[in-house]
C-alpha cells in the first residue's frame, strides 16, 4: 500500500518550510497555557514540528496548513493515541482530490478561502495561529452553520464545508491504508477493529470474544488476488468492471476446509 515517493519540487520545499513555521507558532506559550488537554503529548507536537512535512499534490501550502490544523482538532493526538495527523488523513484527502474526489476540489478551494476569511474576521487571526481552544470554537461555529451569514463567503451553509471535511477525514483515519490514510493502522487500532481478514473461523470469533485475537495489520490489497484497478481513487471510470478469467493459482478460489467441524450453531 505504500506509495512510490514523488519528486519533490521547489514549491513543495517552500510548503514544508511554511508548515514548520506554523507549527512553531501553534506550539507557543499562549496555546500551551490555554490547552492543557493538547499539552498531553508535547513530545509528539515537538516531533511533528521538527519533521519536514511531506509534499502535497493537490492542495496549496496554505490550504494544506489549514487542513492539517483542522484534522488535528477533529481527531487530536492525545493520551488515547495517535490522531488524524499521524493517520495522514490530510494526505488521504489531498491525494483523493486528484482522483476519486476530484469533483469536490472546487468545494474545498472555496471552503478554505471562506474558512480563512471567517477566522480572520471573527477571531482576528488565521486558523493555524489560534490556540486550540479558539480553533475548536471556530470549528464548532462552522459545523453549526453559525459561520454562515458572517460575510466570510461560505457557499450555502458553512456546515456543508464542515461535513465534507469531516467525512473525508474519517475516511482518511479509518479507511483502508491502500488509499493513503490510516497510516500504521492507527485508526483501526483506536476503534479496536481487529483488521481485514479473508477468513474468520469459528475459533477466530471465539478468540475475538475472549479478547485473544491479535489485530491483523493488513490492507485488503495485501491479500493476493483482488483486482486493484478500481481501488486507486478516481480512475474508476477508466476501468469499468470487466471480465476477469479465472486464474488457476487464484487463492480466493480455494474451498476452505474449516466449515463443518467448527460450526457453533445448528446441529
Amino acid at each position: 500500500m505504500s506509495e512510490t515517493p514523488r519528486v519533490i519540487s521547489r514549491r513543495d520545499l517552500l510548503r514544508t518550510a511554511s508548515a514548520v513555521g506554523a507549527a512553531a507558532v501553534a506550539g507557543g506559550g499562549e496555546a500551551a497555557a490555554q490547552a492543557p488537554a493538547a499539552a498531553a503529548t508535547p513530545a509528539a507536537a515537538a516531533a511533528a514540528a521538527a519533521r519536514p512535512r511531506e509534499a502535497y499534490e493537490t492542495l496549496t501550502a496554505r490550504e494544506a496548513d489549514m487542513l492539517e490544523a483542522i484534522v488535528a482538532r477533529l481527531i487530536p493526538s492525545d493520551a488515547n493515541g495517535p490522531g488524524a495527523i499521524e493517520a495522514r488523513a490530510a494526505h488521504y484527502i489531498d491525494r483523493s482530490l486528484a482522483g476519486a474526489l476530484h469533483a469536490e476540489i472546487d468545494a474545498y478551494r472555496a471552503g478554505f478561502a471562506a474558512f480563512d476569511r471567517y477566522c480572520r474576521m471573527s477571531r482576528g487571526k488565521p486558523f493555524v495561529e489560534l490556540p486550540p481552544g479558539d480553533q475548536d470554537s471556530v470549528l464548532i461555529d462552522v459545523e453549526s452553520g453559525a459561520a454562515t451569514g458572517t460575510g466570510a463567503g461560505f457557499a450555502g451553509s458553512s456546515a456543508a464545508f464542515f461535513t465534507m471535511v469531516k467525512q473525508h477525514t474519517w475516511q482518511g483515519m479509518f479507511g483502508d491504508p491502500y488509499y493513503g490514510g490510516n497510516a500504521d493502522f492507527v485508526g483501526w487500532d483506536l476503534l479496536g477493529y481487529p483488521g481485514v481478514r479473508t477468513m474468520v473461523t469459528a475459533a477466530d470469533q471465539q478468540r475475538l470474544e475472549r479478547n485473544q485475537l491479535p489485530p491483523n495489520h493488513r490492507s485488503a490489497y495485501d491479500f493476493d488476488g483482488f483486482n486493484k484497478a478500481t481501488a486507486r481513487g478516481g480512475h474508476d471510470h477508466d476501468h469499468g468492471p470487466g471480465p476477469m478469467p479465472d486464474d488457476p493459482t487464484d487463492d480466493l478460489a480455494q474451498v476452505h476446509p474449516y466449515e463443518q467441524g467448527e460450526l457453533t450453531h445448528g446441529d
Binding site: S122, R123, S137, D141, A146, A147, T150
Partner: peptide, 11 residues
C-alpha cells in the same frame, strides 16, 4: 458585543 457571538470570539 460581537465577542459573545460567532461574529467574534463567541465566548
Amino acid at each position: 458585543h460581537k465577542d459573545f457571538t460567532p461574529d467574534g470570539r463567541n465566548v
